[in-house]
């Protein structure tokens, strides 16, 4: 009796809507906050957003991010190298949460399969994209207190002009 019940249920399923997606001919539409391939974005002016603060690496549970900070002649910090080992990455998104400059972002791209494991080790050139990613307006150095070439002290957002140390005014 129960066998007949099971057969009947299976028969009814034949008329239901299909869940299986015919990948790769059809592709699912993923929300923008889906946690897939990690990228490094750029500031609105096209400069690297990453200031190599090491917070993503510290937040990473499988420790698969390594980098080295350096500084260019303009006073900007940037990563001399930036490496993510995607064979270890668990796509938890902690790096993105930790990032104070919105540089590191997870994207809805999941097509990362490779035949060789070393191909899953992404260097900075593989990670950097040309745009701002999910956060178009953010510009870290505009709100940070440090001076750069082209942005002197007091020229950042919500900053007063530099103090005149030699003033005797009360």
């Amino acid at each position: 009796m129960s066998i007949l019940d099971a057969i009947w249920r299976m028969f009814l399923h034949a008329f239901r809507e299909r869940v299986t997606v015919q990948y790769p001919d059809e592709r699912p539409v993923l929300p923008p906050r889906y946690r897939g391939r990690i990228i490094l974005s750029r500031d609105p002016d096209g400069q690297e957003r990453c200031v190599a603060c090491y917070l993503c690496a510290a937040a990473c549970p499988p420790d698969c991010i390594s980098l080295q900070a350096d500084e260019d002649g303009d006073g900007r910090r940037y990563p001399a190298f930036f490496r993510i080992n995607f064979s270890r990455c668990i796509f938890c998104g902690y790096c993105e949460e930790a990032c104070p400059t919105y540089a590191i972002q997870l994207t809805p791209d999941y097509e990362m399969s490779e035949f060789k494991r070393p191909s899953l080790v992404y260097e900075k050139k593989d990670l950097l994209i040309s745009g701002t990613g999910k956060y178009p307006g953010y510009w870290y150095y505009k709100v940070a207190g440090v001076a750069l070439k082209g942005k002197d002290k007091g020229e950042g957002a919500e900053e007063e002009a530099p103090v005149d140390v030699r003033s005797l005014m009360p």
Partner: peptide, 14 residues
Amino acid sequence: HRRSGRTAVRAEEI
């Protein structure tokens, strides 16, 4: 205990 990059520093060696 919070050292980072353990699985990335020598990633090329598998």
